[in-house]
Amino acid sequence: MDKNNLITFKVQRYDPEHDRIPHFQEFMVPSGKCLTVLEGLLYIKENLDSSLAFRASCRMAICGSCGILINNYPNLACHTQIEEFHSDTLTVKPLPNLPIIKDLVVDLIPFFNTHKSIKPYILRQDAEEMEKPTAEYAQPPRALETLLQFTHCIKCGICISACPTSASDRLFLGPQALSQCYRYCTDNRDEGEKERFPMVDTDHGVWHCHLAGACSEACPKGVDPALAIQLLKRRLVSRAVALGKKQQPSSTVPSPAETKPKLPFPGFTVK
């Protein structure tokens, strides 16, 4: 960090035990090349105010913990360089559309509950095979390609915070859950449409998406939830009017009879 090059972090503070409403606090943080917003927040925590609360874990845009609002744009703090903004001041706030626990920490429990409600796992009719699997279910590369980008979701909640419908309708399922519903319904190993469709075909489900596309624009992993929602709508309509080809769930593939011999473990080079 360059101690001469300082940048102002305007951080929204809120402690429900002491504050009635959120307020801003300014911190001067030494800036430098390739410095991320998360590193700035860590500097504040370690050197200026240890009471600042924020979430972070992997520091490489994998865990989805550090989603915050940076200069009024939702992004991962570890995935955002301070230099990107070409500004002396950075405004840092918690993600909107989610209840604040403290400072930059938001309550993600309702978000995860919504995610859980659409049953984000493979559902099959062959319960016995699911309980005691004897082999893998076949999935050709082309079938994987149809859903691959939606598997990149890291459940950071950034799409929800960018979504204008989630801002006005607190019961709206949100782009994350809806895109994951499509991801599992389109999986050729899955047979769970009948269980998932009643969850998304509600007054606050898939039909309430305004197609603003803010979720796709904000997603730090390049997932396109708006596309998934449109494809889910198409799937629902094709089932409602009994049009379109219904995919047959994939069967299990037997394990190969012969496996390649394992490479011998290299011997020790130092005796």
Partner: peptide
């Protein structure tokens, strides 16, 4: 599928 039919209509 009630909401799907409402939307189609």
């Amino acid at each position: 599928m009630r909401n799907t039919y409402l939307w189609l209509l």
